[in-house]
Design a protein around this nucleic acid. Structure first.
Length: 636
RNA sequence: GGGCCCGUGGCCUAGCCAGGAUAAGGCGGCGGCCUCCUAAGCCGCAGAUCCCCGGUUCGAAUCCGGGCGGGCCCGCCA
């Protein structure tokens, strides 16, 4: 467990307190730089140290004998949470807790204030996170969903940790893809309104866009027309421009309804067509020129272009300099991103204007526009851009350019993740010929699973399960619960795989609701909540203090709850969502094991303690699930 | 050619960054557990050259070097 190593930074309760006790005891026992970590098995106590071993080695003395010595001395110096210190081969010093005191400390800590139990010391500062950023010409597919789930989880995480977070969605409404979509309406005669019952974003992506690309393959004139439309789009007052803005807004509205369904939320929607005319690039450009970071190429393949000088970069220099302004005077994507990065960092004098888009649950969302209030992040300590790993190079170019104009680039973070592929089986269901075990999705070819489509299927499966278990429930209730299960299963599936690993999406597999899935975690909370309810009816009095010695399952659950803050610390500091997922999953497993063997109602002398422990579990797990965006339910 | 990422039982995934005590979980397979707080759960069995070769170390899935295999990036596209 990686996060076991780095713990003593934040003082706090439960495991950290025990670790601190152990550390001090070792120090007083003569260990110079004691390092202490949670054990991975309770057989070795609650915390352990290899410091005595390492020190003995340095001094060339017998390690085990020294560990015994240290353990004997440390035993005199432990605080209230630790009861016993023992040496173990080949030189560990293990600390065993006073389980009754330790458990009480943990349970009280959680029940008093779960937020500070989990997030103490992790707050402060302002964060900007950009995610989603899907071209407004199609409905979201499962690949986009990974971005949304990661980005939204980062937002939730940072907010809970006490940071002020601004969420951005960059809407690229002025690129080639927009021109292609537009062609479908202006040249191929597609109606501006979809057939009845079809969403506009799906209509654009599934019908219009795919058809334009199909036609382009057989009709060479399409390409010429596309170029003409693209050109016309650059003129802000043109009919093409106005139409594209309208279409983009309609698609965006539908896309966002999918994002909302997934639990995401946004503060600012930034349209590229507004960024282009904002003057952000001009400002960045002149600063780049001043600092000598760009030059006008006068020969070679890039003659006539303004190019970023990458010769000073250890890696990028090997791949040639980057074109920022094309020979026709228009900017490249990377150039616009440099300007935008400057704005996100609060380092630009230029602002963007915004007007109200909508208000959801009291939270307003603004969209960039020609008029409205000027907004700009206020020098955030961190700007996170969630975008897949294929953008690593351009993102690095942006960072480098920022550093060249004196903007510290360590505040600018690319949250990279590997893309979502389709399994062979699933790709073939969509009519793709799959030679390999996984294939890339393709908007042009129509090879993708849409988020809505997957969620709807999940709802269907979950509803079937739910109504068979709860035949007495009205269909409305079933539907509501099924929706929460679907979202939980989907988000968990997107988040449980580490970001530097590809996800191979298989539709059959994704409809599973058993095993290592979102519902597994949701179910464990449902069980806990039901116990709380029934125990109260049965008159069980909660008690954070155990009234007799703990059973192994109780210890295991206490231990897992106590360690959750360490997982949170790693998740926040290293932005490793995977750590959080693993912690939530382990916690649920340990709780389920406890559940099987430790009845609360009729649980004997320790019933009151068990009740409080269950409450503590529920509080912690609810927080973790909320952070992951997995809906928490009372029943299912 | 250069750069980045991945490689753990039949399949998928943790653990690797901060090296330690029996390599963890899921799917699939086999066998058990609902008069008892919801069995979307739990228990047991079978199944692993942690891609390979070297090195560092008392100790390597984990660190270093070199290979091999797979993916991605290196556009006057975004």
């Amino acid at each position: 467990m990686g996060f076991r190593r780095r713990c003593q930074i934040v003082a706090g309760v439960s495991i950290r307190r025990a670790m601190e006790e152990a550390r001090k005891a070792l120090e007083r026992a003569g260990v110079r730089e004691p390092r202490v970590v949670p054990t991975k098995s309770l057989a070795f106590g609650i915390v352990t140290s290899t410091s005595a071993f390492e020190e003995a080695k340095e001094r060339g003395i017998d390690a085990m004998a020294y560990a015994e010595e240290v353990a004997a001395r440390a035993r005199q110096h432990t605080g209230p949470l630790l009861a016993e210190v023992r040496a173990a081969q080949p030189g560990y010093v293990n600390f065993y807790p006073d389980w009754r005191r330790f458990s009480e400390d943990v349970v009280r800590g959680v029940l008093e204030d779960v937020r500070s139990f989990l997030y103490e010391g992790l707050g402060g500062g302002e964060v900007v996170v950009e995610h989603t950023s899907v071209n407004p010409n199609k409905a979201l597919h499962v690949g986009h969903a990974r971005n949304v789930c990661i980005g939204d989880t980062v937002y939730r995480l940072m907010s809970k940790a006490g940071r002020r977070v601004t969420v951005l969605n960059y809407v690229d409404d002025s690129g080639a893809q927009m021109a292609e979509l537009l062609l479908g309406f202006t040249e191929l005669g597609f109606d501006l309104n979809p057939p009845p019952g079809m969403r506009f974003d799906e209509y654009c992506g599934d019908s219009v866009y795919v058809e334009v690309n199909r036609r382009a393959k057989v009709d060479p004139e399409i390409e010429a027309k596309r170029r003409r439309v693209a050109k016309e789009l650059e003129e802000r007052g043109s009919d093409a421009f106005k139409l594209s803005r309208e279409i983009a807004l309609r698609v965006l509205r539908d896309q966002l309804s999918t994002c909302y369904r997934l639990g995401a939320s946004y503060d600012l929607l930034v349209r590229e067509s507004d960024v282009v005319v904002s003057g952000l690039w001009d400002e960045a450009f002149s600063r780049l020129k001043e600092s000598g970071a760009v030059y006008l190429a006068d020969r070679g393949s890039k003659a006539g272009c303004w190019v970023a000088d990458l010769s000073g970069h250890p890696v990028l220099s090997k791949e040639g300099d980057e074109v920022l302004v094309k020979s026709d005077g228009s900017t490249t994507y990377v150039a616009r991103d440099i300007g935008f990065a400057l704005w996100k960092l609060g380092e630009s004098r230029t602002s963007l204007r915004f007007s109200l888009w909508d208000v959801r649950d009291g939270r307003p969302t603004y969209i960039s526009s020609e008029e409205g209030v000027s907004l700009r992040p206020n020098s955030p300590s961190l700007v996170i851009t969630v975008v897949d790993s294929r953008q690593r190079r351009p993102q690095e170019v942006v960072r480098y350019a920022l550093s060249r104009i004196g903007v510290s680039a360590d505040r600018y973070l690319h949250y990279s993740y590997e893309p979502v592929l389709l399994s062979k089986r699933s790709a073939e269901m969509l009519g793709a010929k799959a030679e390999r075990s996984a294939v890339q999705m393709s908007g042009r070819e129509g090879i993708y699973f849409k988020v809505e489509q997957v969620l709807d299927k999940l709802v269907e499966v979950a509803a079937r399960e739910t109504s068979s278990r709860r035949p007495e429930w009205p269909s409305e209730r079933v539907r509501e619960v099924a929706e929460a299960i679907a979202v939980g299963a989907f988000r968990y599936g997107m988040l449980k795989v580490d970001s530097d690993k590809q996800i191979v999406f298989d539709i059959e597999e994704s409809l599973r609701l058993e095993g290592d899935t979102g519902p597994y975690l949701q179910y464990s909370v449902v069980r806990a909540r039901k116990i709380l309810l029934k125990a109260e009816e049965a008159g069980v009095e909660p008690s954070p203090a155990p009234s007799e010695d703990l059973t192994p399952h109780e210890m295991q659950l206490v231990r897992e709850v106590s360690v959750a803050p360490l997982a949170l610390e790693d998740t926040v500091k290293a932005l490793r969502i995977r750590t959080l997922v693993t912690q939530a999953r382990t916690l649920a497993t340990v709780f389920n094991e406890f559940y099987e063997s430790c009845p609360v109602i009729g649980g004997g002398p320790n019933a009151g303690f068990r009740l409080s422990l269950v409450a503590a579990y529920a509080r912690v797990q609810e927080e973790l699930l909320e952070t992951l965006g997995v809906p928490v339910l009372d029943e299912l």
